[in-house]
């Protein structure tokens, strides 16, 4: 049987080859230059990266580290206190000290510096830098230098304002990423209940997060299917048509899915009111950590605001 199958395969290939190349197929060798990614390829790559980021977050969250061992509510409240202290501080060294504390916490929790650099600092520097740049020239004050070629004056007050903005953003983003990377997203959402966020809102966020992955998977399947049937590059108009059609199909699928999910919830007794199970339990270590976070935030507020 196996011999027959192999013979059939060979026979099939011979039959195709006997007909020669497909008439319209390009026969000349393509010029040796780097081919630009198509719209479909770029979309697929983006979807793949989204899955990778999620996997990486789960992997870091599962590592043994300082913050991973703490109750999510302690991490949420503690890191939020530090963000508030950094945002409120009027002294640059205090903000930088909170930033250093954030980096130390990240390192102690197994988050490498290159992750912080790639996922937080580069983006924060580029985007916040773009916002802060005009402040260098527009803020009135003592001139400390001039920009070459255009000759615009850079003021000391402008530099300080830009440094404040940049350091606050870097600190807040570092602390936020540290929280998200060391805590499963579902626990972060559940921990929001301690801040009196309504249960319905938390449940909706949880379901949104859960179904994002299903839609990502659906989108990836759709684009892979499209790619498998696409030869060459799509022009701009065709790419836009594919994108619009895909968005439409995904919207239709998500609408149908939401109806089905609602029926499934009803089937198990959901009547519009959300009931949840709180599984967190504070230990002595958690209380100690909460005291530490509170003390650090209070110290930063005292040194940066009230002193």
């Amino acid at each position: 049987m196996e011999r027959r199958a192999k013979s059939d395969e060979r026979g099939g290939a011979e039959t195709v080859l006997a007909h020669g190349p497909i008439p319209d197929a390009p026969t000349r060798r393509a010029p040796r230059r780097r081919r630009r990614s198509t719209f479909v390829e770029k979309t697929l790559r983006g979807l793949g990266e989204a899955f990778e980021r999620s996997l990486y977050s789960e992997e870091v969250g599962g590592r043994r580290g300082l913050l991973q061992a703490l109750d999510p509510r302690v991490k949420l409240v503690g890191l939020l206190l530090l963000i508030v202290a950094a945002a409120a501080s009027r002294r640059l060294p205090v903000i930088l000290a909170v930033f250093a504390l954030g980096v130390a916490l990240a390192l102690a929790s197994g988050i490498p510096l290159r992750t912080l650099l790639r996922r937080v600092w580069l983006g924060a520097i580029v985007f916040t830098g773009a916002i802060a740049l005009p402040a260098l020239f527009l803020t009135p004050g003592r001139e400390v230098g001039r920009l070459p070629l255009v000759g615009w004056a850079v003021t000391a007050q402008g530099l300080l304002a830009a440094a404040f903005l940049l350091s606050r953003v870097l600190t807040s983003a570092t602390l936020a990423l540290t929280l998200v990377l060391t805590t499963p997203w579902n626990d972060v959402l559940k921990a929001l209940r301690v801040l009196r966020v309504p249960a319905l809102f938390v449940v909706i966020l949880g379901m949104t997060y859960r179904y994002i992955f299903l839609l990502l998977q659906t989108a990836r399947d759709m684009f892979e299917s499209r790619q498998s049937r696409t030869v060459g590059r799509l022009d701009g108009a065709e790419s836009r048509r594919v994108a619009a059609a895909s968005v439409g199909v995904l919207l239709g699928k998500s609408f149908a899915l939401s109806n089905e999910v609602y029926l499934a919830m009803q089937s198990r007794g959901f009547r519009g009111e959300v009931h949840t199970l709180d599984e967190f339990a504070m230990t002595a270590r958690d209380w100690l950590a909460l005291a530490g976070f509170s003390a650090a935030a209070a110290l930063a507020l005292w040194a940066g605001v009230w002193r």
């Binding site: 997203w185 949880g206 859960r210 999910v261 499934a264």
Partner: peptide, 9 residues
């Protein structure tokens, strides 16, 4: 479709 029924985190 179990994906319909598994809506919790």
């Amino acid at each position: 479709n179990p994906d319909v029924q598994l809506f919790s985190p």
